[in-house]
């Protein structure tokens, strides 16, 4: 597969040539979006919050609302990279008996219904517990396209990376605004599908505004990689999404959805509110002119 076309606005100094993993559903998805010059809408849901059935329904509604990629969390007892909203959702999901297999059944149902790629986010101990390679095989056979493992550093992940590739899963790396350029280059070099740009230093959770140095951060990443850049952590609503959509290739929104679900008067109301917000976000992310 050819390398990605780049948005015209991106600075182009001497990018490291990147060939995305051929045949990857995420690569295909972003190729299409970049051709349409449209940023991806990537909602996050925690499997089992508020319930397994509700998560299935939420994924279907997200697809209807125009989600381009789905991020699905599998709960962990100690979610280090997550703020209070997703911590509570994770805790709630575990209390509900949610497991990796349970999350994969939800993913499988969604994959059977729509061809929107699913990225699974969980912590490394969850994957190691059942044997790392066995876990990857189960994830792959559930139709999941990619993985985000926030507590697996680039260095610690080196030994595990070949198994991920062998399972034909895209491991998405996270880059932080504090990452020096050399590190950004290394992260992008190891990342597949897209590069997850953490908009602020810190954990997941809604912030009042997007960090002011986001443009500079995205521009810095553009100079070292041709991978699609998706921005997450701290995205609250359409206004921020629009600002991110002007510079990045995708917007991830998670904690804001979890909060809507938690504060709603019952699951149907929460699901309806989530769908409305996603439709608003979709409208806020028009094709770049």
């Amino acid at each position: 597969m050819a390398s990605f076309p780049r948005p015209a606005s991106a600075a182009r100094n001497s990018p490291a040539p990147r060939t995305p993993f051929a045949g990857s559903p995420l690569s295909a998805c972003f190729s299409r979006l970049l051709a349409e010059r449209r940023p991806a809408l990537i909602p996050y849901f925690m499997a089992g919050f508020p319930s397994a059935a509700a998560t299935r329904d939420l994924l279907a509604r997200a697809v209807d609302a125009g989600a381009d990629v789905l991020e699905l969390g599998s709960p962990f007892s100690d979610p280090l990279a997550d703020g209070p909203a997703i911590q509570q959702a994770s805790h709630h999901a575990l209390e509900n008996g949610m497991t990796l297999d349970g999350a994969l059944r939800i993913a499988e149902a969604s994959a059977a219904r729509a061809s929107v790629p699913i990225v699974l986010m969980t912590y490394v101990n969850v994957l190691l517990a059942g044997g790392f390679e066995l876990s990857l095989a189960r994830i792959r056979s559930a139709g999941v396209a990619g993985l985000i493992i926030p507590d697996l550093s680039l260095e610690a992940g080196r030994d595990l990376l070949p198994s991920v590739r062998a399972a034909r899963l895209d491991l998405v790396q996270l880059a932080a605004p504090t990452s020096p350029t050399a590190r950004l280059r290394a992260l992008a070099g190891a990342s597949r599908g897209f590069l997850y740009m953490v908009s602020v230093t810190g954990v997941t959770g809604v912030r009042a505004s997007v960090a002011s140095d986001l443009e500079a951060f995205v521009a810095r990443a553009r100079r070292v990689t041709e991978l699609p850049l998706c921005v997450g952590f701290g995205v609250a609503g359409p206004e921020q999404a629009a600002r991110i959509g002007r510079i990045a290739d995708g917007v991830v929104i998670g904690s804001a959805l979890v909060k809507l679900l938690r504060e709603a008067d019952g699951v149907p109301q929460g699901a309806a509110r989530v769908q409305r917000l996603l439709c608003a976000l979709r409208r806020a992310l028009p094709a770049r002119s």
């Binding site: 007892s77 100690d78 280090l80 101990n125 994957l127």
Partner: peptide, 19 residues
């Protein structure tokens, strides 16, 4: 053995890797 707080070591965890 498992991974918690950034190091790999023995851990009290259930069969599914929850601490």
């Amino acid at each position: 053995p498992g991974v918690l707080h950034g190091s790999r070591s023995y851990l009290l965890q259930d069969a599914r890797g929850q601490i």
